[in-house]
Design a binder for these strands. Structure first.
Lengths: 214, 214
DNA sequence: TGCTTTATGGTACAACCATACCATCAAGCG
DNA sequence: CGCTTGATGGTATGGTTGTACCATAAAGCA
């Protein structure tokens, strides 16, 4: 045998090339040739490591889903062990909003995959949308903990609230992606809304005005 | 001359054929041939009425944006003249959630265009995203009116709240489109949230329990 | 040392796509 | 009545795409 290439790494490089091209020219611009060019290899090699284009696309999606998990975990880790439910919920919601170029690229490709999955059977059967369901129960747990800590009104329907929070962050993220509003605006909206939610039981007459934060 | 065809109507038929194919096979499946087939005419005719594919896509987008306006106006009209700001806001938000097949088709294609516009220069320059901005000022007005009527806490930042409401309905609509949750669930979430917003000044101790949770 | 296996390049091929070109039919105007 | 003009069909064409096929260099094993 020749160079004895590490297949896993080579596949990762190719997948990254795909994600890069998808990020700045769209998922529809992803072809065997464009990926090969971006990866600096021949088309034949892309074929060699991923027999068919569909398998390549699925591998990229898998990678993307994994990265999504990493991103959220990183957010939570950087929040530290002493993080309150309010801080955790905020971290998760802010993750859905693309701030820097990397975040934009990530969320764009992810959204492209999601929309494509509506009309593409091969993608629809892929369980990469399990995330939202898991996220929902996670948020519910955080809200319940906040309720028991007295930070959230015990009358709040935590399940409904969790759904609303996820929808809001997704919607804000999308609007930022579409260039309808700057990321900072979305950030502020999230913080403002969470402040309301987490203060709903203690209106604290000493400082009723929201004032500045962050 | 022969049949002396009404160009406007013929163009409308072709555009509708495009929207139909896009709705059930995706925007990426829209080709001159697929549109011609769906419209029951020859490819040459599609070429005849829309010189290039790009013009055809732009025409379809224009039609889509117009239909968006009609849809919202219909919602508002069916709410009647006596509608309260709360009812108007609810109507607008529910419109963003695809309930029936037609709504699904409409929102799917619209979302596909929106996502495509991120990487497609020709679409990005199109001002079909002016809607959200106009919608924002519309919602702000409604919320202000509600404040003056005493239905919304006067301390609420109406502009922030409007942004949050739009994001939430967009996010819920997207999740329904992606099959992550049923439309009824999204409806309930909207209603539940609006009930909180519009009762924030009158907590009505007679019926504090909103419903049971999971 | 020779053979097998792996990694790679190049190229061919069939399908498809957008578009251009050529032809035709019919209707109203002169 | 003939000619022009609008509406349509068919087909060619150049480009691109995904995939299959053929070839070859190199590295370890026998």
């Amino acid at each position: 045998m020749p160079k004895l290439v590490d297949h896993a790494q080579r596949r990762a490089e190719i997948v990254d090339a795909l994600l890069r091209t998808a990020a700045d020219r769209g998922l529809h611009a992803v072809t065997m040739q464009s990926v090969a060019l971006e990866a600096g290899i021949s088309v034949r090699l892309v074929q060699y490591y991923f027999d068919t284009k569909e398998q390549l696309l699925l591998a990229a999606l898998t990678r993307l889903a994994a990265r999504m998990g990493e991103r959220i975990e990183n957010r939570l880790r950087s929040a530290g062990d002493t993080a309150t439910p309010a801080e955790i919920v905020e971290a998760v919601m802010l993750e859905a909003i693309p701030a820097d170029a990397e975040g934009r690229a990530f969320h764009l490709v992810y959204t492209e995959y999601a929309v494509l999955s509506v009309t593409d059977a091969a993608l629809a059967s892929q369980p990469f949308m399990a995330e939202p369901d898991g996220m929902e129960v996670f948020l519910v747990r955080q809200l319940r903990a906040a309720q028991q800590a007295g930070d959230v009104d015990p009358e709040v329907d935590v399940r409904r609230e969790a759904v609303a929070l996820m929808a809001m962050s997704a919607g804000l993220g999308l609007s930022v992606l579409l260039g309808q509003r700057p990321a900072d605006d979305a950030f502020e909206t999230v913080r403002h809304h969470l402040k309301r939610l987490f203060q709903s039981i203690t209106p604290d007459p000493a400082a009723p005005k929201s004032s500045s934060s962050s």
